[in-house]
Design a protein around this nucleic acid. Structure first.
Lengths: 168, 168
DNA sequence: CAAATTTAGTTTCATTTGAAACCGATGTGA
DNA sequence: TCACATCGGTTTCAAATGAAACTAAATTTG
């Protein structure tokens, strides 16, 4: 186990730093983002689920329909960053629950046209402010400058992560 | 949360702003973090899996052992932010694969003492630089100032998200 | 010290997940 | 026009997941 080159830690914190070739998992960016996403997701999902019996995929489908309806299943998939299997299942449940409606595209009878049903729209309109409240609470400890920076940083990281994914 | 300021859309698509009570999912923080985490996770998992046949939970267990061994299963769970069921299963697979070894704590025979096996240590030492390379690539587009800010922002958000979770 | 409680970790079971196979509908080329 | 590829979407199947039940060891309590 030869001595490996030291790396500069992305932060000043944790100065007692890792030794040799050992990784400080708690400072490792992919890990931190994953943990953060899970924590937030739990917070948010608890809200959707407890009050409306919706799963995250279901809520996401409703969210994009609320903004861009009508959409085909494929368009929903593109906008929610979910794969088509997940979308298909979420859509099936929402149809069964009467929260969305589906028509078939006249020109291309493979494509669906999904919209919120009246019941779905009411729920959507009830959830939006709650969702925004969670977001506000998350951001509460940040100054408005920090929020702008966060926005930029997330955009950069996302672009970068996608570039890496494509390159493989 | 009325009339948000206009800003660059991270995806360049969907330039038209959200109206009334409609939510711009693509700007919603929980959603963005979730998508980013998934994208990164896929990048990284592809690497672990392709070259070493490891899943993310397995790699995480090895990562904390590499840094803090010996650990009990519970300590691994605490340090990886995984629940004990996941840890138990990842540990079982790693034991079967001969990448870690388990002894029982002499004082408390319920507790295990997990360590990397020689084979596991070799793999760990092969993965660490690759993992760091992915991280470096992700951070490549950020200045060192931005990295420091990212670090701070992630810490704040994590603290906040945990506070919200506890409060429910 | 024996019963009751708590703790570490595993197993069970029902649900979720995603890759790949699949099914019609549509587009394309010879 | 008739194969053949392609596309939108669903289903299948095997693996991952997590809540809750469970086992065994340790601790507390009466």
């Amino acid at each position: 186990m030869a001595a490996r080159k030291r790396r500069q830690n992305p932060s000043a914190a944790a100065p007692e730093a890792e030794a040799r070739g050992r990784l400080a998992l708690e400072r490792f960016l992919p890990y931190r983002i994953s943990v953060l996403a899970n924590t937030i997701s739990r917070d948010v999902a608890a809200m959707y689920d407890a009050r409306f019996g919706l799963s995250v995929p279901e809520w996401r489908v409703m969210a994009v329909l609320g903004r861009f309806e009508p959409l085909s299943a494929g368009e929903v998939a593109a906008r929610t960053a979910m794969d088509k299997v997940r979308v298909s299942r979420a859509v099936a449940r929402l149809l069964r629950a009467g929260l969305i409606v589906r028509a078939m595209d006249a020109r291309d009878r493979r494509r669906s046209r999904l919209r919120l049903a009246a019941r779905g729209l009411r729920i959507y309109e009830a959830i939006v402010p709650l969702a925004l409240r969670v977001e506000t609470e998350l951001l509460a400890s940040l100054t408005s400058g920090e929020r702008r920076r966060l926005d930029r940083l997330l955009a950069k990281l996302q672009a970068r992560a996608e570039a890496i994914a494509r390159r493989d």
